[in-house]
């Protein structure tokens, strides 16, 4: 029964081993999201999106990637529909050239926030798909995160995959009752869809979150100042190489962005007005 001794090497187990250290992934995310905030032209944002997409493909979770992009596309189309519809309504209610120019400006610049969100989605998804509590614990240990922040973060990270599993079970349970929950049913039967999903999800998730918090405390997670590790986190050559590449590419994109001609500001916006004020008379367009 109880073995007296056993050799165990966690590195030899079947489990997936991430090619990069979790800290490398976190640093890449930090650099990419910061640089993306600075970038505003289509060319640089598209380049950043393409590069981070290649980085995301390394996870080989193609089904999840396609689903995430479809969701992003759906959100984009939904926003586009709302903006287009509301612009038509405004132009109908407040006719005039100024309004028309402003609304067309809104539509022209509509894609920028979505282009900005793609690199962030790629790097964050890459962390999510390679998430390991081991790596997370190691990182939090190295940054000495306080317990009152650490436990909620750990519970949240553990909660996400469990939540996905609960949604699958809920979908099965609802289908067995002869109903389907999806985009179509949300449009055709919104109240029924809310009832079939919200009630069990809220009850289950509250219970799960409570129990996971208790479990974390009972394992004394967050109580030790210097917890040890089953598997030592190590920066390898690949981590340094990837980080260096990220910094170089980000710097190159920033330089490119700085040398690109500035896009035309929308008339009536604050930046357009301030540029008009700062420029000497006679030069304003």
């Amino acid at each position: 029964m109880l073995a007296l001794s056993a050799k165990f090497d966690p590195d030899s187990t079947v489990g997936k081993r991430d090619a990069l250290d979790i800290r490398t992934r976190l640093l890449i995310s930090l650099v990419v999201t910061s640089v993306t905030l600075y970038l505003s032209s289509n060319a640089t944002l598209a380049a950043m999106s393409a590069l981070t997409f290649c980085y995301l493909l390394q996870t080989r979770r193609y089904a999840v990637i396609v689903a995430a992009y479809l969701l992003m596309l759906l959100m984009t189309l939904l926003s586009l529909g709302i903006i287009y519809g509301s612009s038509r309504l405004f132009m109908l209610l407040l006719p005039g050239e100024g309004m028309s120019r402003m609304m067309s400006g809104v539509l022209d610049n509509f894609h920028t926030p979505f282009l900005r969100s793609i690199p962030s989605m790629n790097v964050l998804l890459s962390i999510g798909l390679n998430f390991s509590v081991q790596g997370f614990v190691g990182t939090m240990k190295s940054v000495r995160m306080p317990r009152f922040l650490f436990i909620p973060l750990l519970v949240f990270c553990r909660f996400v995959p469990e939540f996905v599993d609960v949604i699958r079970q809920l979908r099965d349970a609802v289908r067995m009752r002869g109903f389907a929950v999806g985009f179509g049913s949300a449009i055709l039967h919104p109240f029924q869809t809310i009832r079939l999903t919200a009630v069990p999800l809220v009850v289950r998730t509250l219970r799960m979150a409570d129990n996971l918090s208790m479990a974390a405390e009972m394992k004394r997670v967050g109580y030790a100042k210097h917890p040890t590790q089953l598997r030592t986190l190590r920066f390898r050559h690949l981590d340094f190489a990837v980080l260096a590449f990220t910094v170089l590419v980000s710097a190159a994109l920033c330089i490119w962005e700085a040398h690109l001609p500035k896009p035309k500001r929308m008339p009536g916006t604050r930046s357009a007005r301030s540029s008009q004020i700062s420029q000497p008379s006679g030069i304003t367009k």
Partner: peptide, 20 residues
Amino acid sequence: DQIMATTVQEEVALALEWQC
């Protein structure tokens, strides 16, 4: 409701890690 880690070995090791 009790498993905090994402793999079996990590779960078994988790409490030990926090016991240093």
